[in-house]
Computed example of a mutant assay.
Amino acid sequence: MPHRDRAAALAAATPTPGFFDGFEERSAPLPDGGQIFCRIGGEGPPLLLLHGYPQTSAMWHAIAPDLARHYTVICADLRGYGRSHKPAGGGDHAAYSKRSMAQDMATLMTVLGHDRFRILAHDRGARVAHRLAADHADRVLGLAILDIAPTREMYRHTRTPFARRYWHWFWLVQPAPFPETMIGRDPDWFWLEKCDTAPAGLGPFCQQALREYLEYFNDPAAIHASCEDYRAAIGIDLAHDDADAGRKLPMPVLALWGADGAIEEFFDCVALWRERAEQVSGRALPGGHYLAEECPDAVLREVIPFLASLTDS
């Protein structure tokens, strides 16, 4: 089905049964006047879930209900994405530095009454989680990350084959409004075409999640914000990483990645994370980039015992 027809069909589709049943939706205010949208469900110790690009907190629909049996699960939309605020990036793109995005999440957890917490994060959200753990080490008990190696180290090890595979890393960072204008001509086509080139195609995405992804990506402010996210990654984020001066994350890190994805093909994921964290374990899972939607059961089998091993002492 052509992407434009598929987008129209998704818009008219009935909701996916069981989609975040039992979760409430909230928008938490921030001191700067912005807000972070989140879905909250379950009882127990707090667990923060952060999504990737070009998605929203909807990506956790197949995992969050199981985790909510053990934890108070907070699935947040990152700034610039979904229903969260979308400030201007600024000349140095600092508004979308992972430090700024991480501070949003630290503030969100404070607003919700959670001092210390666990994190499960994917893709861009995992880069935010890395900075959150670095800047607020006293609050993060541990983090499980899906299909990334550390940003600085991935750039350092980039070669032509990876650049061809991850072309968007080098295209989205071009000065505004070049990528924004081109994406804005047909956001549905861009979203569906980019994700359809993943090893599993669009098959892993449920209809209601896809509807949400497309709806909120059609906002020009979201398109700009997502470009700013990548512009920050190749600039100010690297400066923040360098300023860490070899300081490593003290809490446990679980790194999971897709056996069919770019991380497996081009990087030694565990070795690179051991450059940035003191305690690292991990392995490849049977899937590509979108593990939480491609193989949720496999993710849960790894994540649940890891999270349970983290103690608030």
Results as ranks from 00 to 15, higher is better:
R156N: 02
D241Q: 07
N218T: 04
T158M: 15
L48D: 03
A284D: 13
P2R: 11
V128C: 12
D297A: 14
P65H: 12
K86R: 10
H85K: 00
P65Y: 11
T56S: 08
Y230C: 03
V299T: 00
Q207Y: 08
D244T: 12
G89R: 07
S97R: 11
V140E: 06
W191M: 11
L307G: 05
W171L: 14
H114W: 13
D312H: 08
P2I: 05
T110F: 02
Y71K: 04
V111I: 12
L238R: 12
A102W: 01
P29V: 00
H70D: 14
E294C: 09
L172M: 15
L307F: 06
I234Y: 01
D186S: 14
T110C: 06
Q103P: 00
W191P: 00
L291I: 14
G203Y: 12
G89P: 06
E265V: 15
G261A: 15
Q174L: 15
F117W: 10
I63Q: 14
A262W: 04
A232T: 04
G41P: 05
P17Y: 09
F306L: 02
E25I: 09
P46Y: 06
E264L: 09
D135I: 07
A225E: 00
A133Y: 04
P65L: 11
A308H: 13
P252W: 03
A149T: 08
R79L: 08
D5S: 08
C295L: 07
D135T: 04
P150N: 09
P250F: 12
D219E: 06
M251I: 05
H114V: 07
P252C: 03
L310T: 02
M109V: 06
L48E: 03
L132E: 05
G246C: 07
T72E: 08
I63P: 02
I145S: 11
V173I: 14
E193H: 14
P177I: 00
L143P: 02
M105Q: 14
A298M: 13
A209M: 13
W191D: 01
T56M: 04
L238P: 02
S97H: 10
K98E: 02
A62T: 09
W273N: 01
L49E: 15
R274D: 03
Y71E: 10
F306G: 03
A28S: 14
H130C: 02
F306Y: 04
R79Y: 07
Y216Q: 02
Q208K: 07
P87F: 09
K86V: 01
T110Q: 15
P179F: 00
I263M: 15
P252G: 03
A94C: 03
C269I: 08
A149Y: 06
W169P: 04
R283Q: 15
V253S: 10
S313H: 11
G235F: 02
G90Q: 05
A292G: 05
G90Y: 07
R283G: 12
R274K: 11
P305R: 10
A62P: 01
F20T: 04
S309A: 15
L10K: 09
E215D: 12
R69W: 02
I63K: 02
A221N: 01
P15A: 05
Y166G: 06
H289V: 06
R211G: 11
H61R: 08
N218R: 15
R39N: 09
D241S: 05
R211S: 10
C206M: 09
A58S: 13
